[in-house]
Amino acid sequence: MNIQTNMQNYAGRSLVDRAMRGLTVVATALAIIPLFLIIGYVLIVGGAALNLDFFTQTYQPPVAVGSEAIDPATGLPIDSTLSGSGAIDPATGLPIDPSTAGSSEEQPDLSQVEARGGVLHGIVGTLMITIAALLISLPIGIMAGIFLAEYPDTPFNTFIRFCCDVLSGAPSIVIGVVGFTLLVQTTRTYSGVAGAIALTFLMVPTIARTTEEILKLVPNATREAAMAMGAPMWYATLTVVVPTALSGIVTGALLAFARGAGETAPLLLTIQGNSNLSFSLFEPLAALPLLTYKYIESPFPAENQLAWGTAFVLMMLVLGVNLLVRITTARIKKG
């Protein structure tokens, strides 16, 4: 360190100091600009796409191609090819979006078509799959979190933590591949269950780690007090420690829910998508992020609008959960 020599050039050093400090401010601004742009676009463009139909209708083709195929009474879509999954066109090797496959019979006035239909099927699908995944992940995550926090810290615990990091750091497509080979191929059908189990892989580590961290915030005196009353450790943990940390555990579950609801790649390979409203976890289901992916690639501006609307709903979910988490954690830390 050549501070001695630098001393002679205080003006220069001070200039460097200002310049570099200024650069860090610029960098921070650079990160915040895209955030506001993304949120802004989704809120404005997506918000404009919302109406009552958006939440209460399922998919309707933007134009009546082969009108005999649409039942005007129920508004049911023509066939399931529209729900095809993202793919490369095998003939040309070009990237072809899923939705053109069934609806490519061009109509002259595509750009004029109004948005029709809604994403009720996607909302229902996302809720069903994510809640199912949450029901599977919660016991695993919470119990593993208790194991990590309440029992002596051994290298084995470090290994489990590492496994959590691996799972949450694993590319989501890899989890999709696992769901695909493990469930879709063996049962020979895309299904909501396969999607839920794939999401479990991603939600468990989040829940386990937040549970662990929040349990560690519970003061030891609480545990000692319970045990001094004669409670065995498991009883103290379940009836005193966990309830004390409950709001934090709920926070973790909410974060996992938000993450699961936004995941696309695992669902792409496991639930396939469905243009109809379906309440069965054992059938192909639709999900909001899949609809965003599918509709933005569509040649119909009307469907692109649906994509933005879907993104709006997803964004609201994510922002809402994160704000809620923020408020809850602030309250816990205050004590």
Binding site: F147, C163, L167, V178, M233
Partner: peptide, 28 residues
């Protein structure tokens, strides 16, 4: 007092996490 049972139970779920990682590796 059931402590061992509870420990085994939480251990089991902790092992499930390792199992998930192993599952990803084995399946792929």
């Amino acid at each position: 007092h059931g402590d061992l049972f509870f420990w085994l139970l939480t251990l089991f779920f902790a092992l499930v996490i390792i199992g998930l990682v192993v599952a990803v590796g084995v399946v792929t």
